[in-house]
């Protein structure tokens, strides 16, 4: 079964020519996909479509069995909470919450992820502890280190834990390594992939940094699937 399937997807900002025009694209469950594109190629728009933050004007986007474009906005929010873990480029964490509270935030919003965490680990707390220790962050938690005193790499690892807690089926990371040096970036990706694999989830990592590409099962060049970028002649509007 496909984790994501896209058919004739088209999106344009008001009164402008489309920035996304994807005839067809499918990502299988459990796949590790590297979605590459230079900045301004419509990456962010595509991410917002895949997470249900935006609705396409035409076409279909399906996550698992759910046709995201058929849901209303509240249902899309709920779907995102239950089924998608998202990692930002940086500044993933709320500075006023502890490391653990940041991780558990996903379970505070989604009942389904809370129940899954409890079913698997007995409690949200132990799900959180288990994830953080496999990400090598147990010591920082023990020290009660404030989030603001974590390094960027540590913050991004906490973000992995938050994306994965409660076992969502799809993990989307938007340039998560852009603030890391090459060595750390590769370590980060390896760690992320190990955790995603352990959770039986699907990973889509978006980046313009092609040095990461070899670590993935599959590399998709956004320019290859997005017709809009061709018609614009390489001048991208995002």
């Amino acid at each position: 079964m496909a984790a994501i399937s896209i058919e004739a997807l088209s999106f344009a900002w008001a009164q402008q020519s489309p920035v996304i025009d994807i005839p067809s694209c499918s990502i299988a469950a459990g796949e590790m996909v590297f979605l590459q594109g230079p900045s301004g190629s419509g990456k962010s728009t595509l991410l917002n479509l895949m997470t249900g933050m935006l609705v396409p004007q035409r076409g279909e986007i399906r996550i698992g069995d759910t046709r995201l474009n058929r849901l209303n906005s509240v249902a899309r929010d709920r779907f995102r909470a239950d089924h998608i873990g998202f990692i930002f480029q940086s500044l993933n964490l709320l500075p006023y919450l502890s490391i653990e509270a940041n991780v558990q935030l996903a379970c505070r919003v989604s009942k389904q992820r809370r129940q899954r965490a409890i079913a698997r680990f007995g409690s949200v707390q132990s799900a959180c502890t288990s994830l953080l220790s496999s990400l090598g962050l147990a010591e920082l938690v023990d020290e009660k280190r404030p989030v603001s005193q974590l390094s960027v790499g540590q913050q991004q690892r906490v973000a992995i834990a938050r994306a994965l807690i409660g076992a969502p089926e799809l993990i989307i990371a938007d340039e998560p390594t852009s603030a890391l040096d090459t060595a750390s970036a590769q370590r980060f990706v390896a760690l992320l992939q190990a955790e995603v694999k352990a959770a039986d989830a699907t990973l889509i990592l978006v980046s313009h940094d092609e040095r990461l590409a070899p670590q993935f099962d599959r590399v998709i060049q956004l320019a290859d699937i997005n017709q809009a970028s061709k018609t614009m002649g390489g001048v991208y509007v995002d």
């Binding site: 933050m53 509240v74 929010d77 995102r80 998202f86 930002f88």
Partner: peptide, 16 residues
Amino acid sequence: RRELAIFRAVGARPWH
């Protein structure tokens, strides 16, 4: 805005 984006990313609904 950053804070709100994080809440929205974890699926917080408008009423949240």
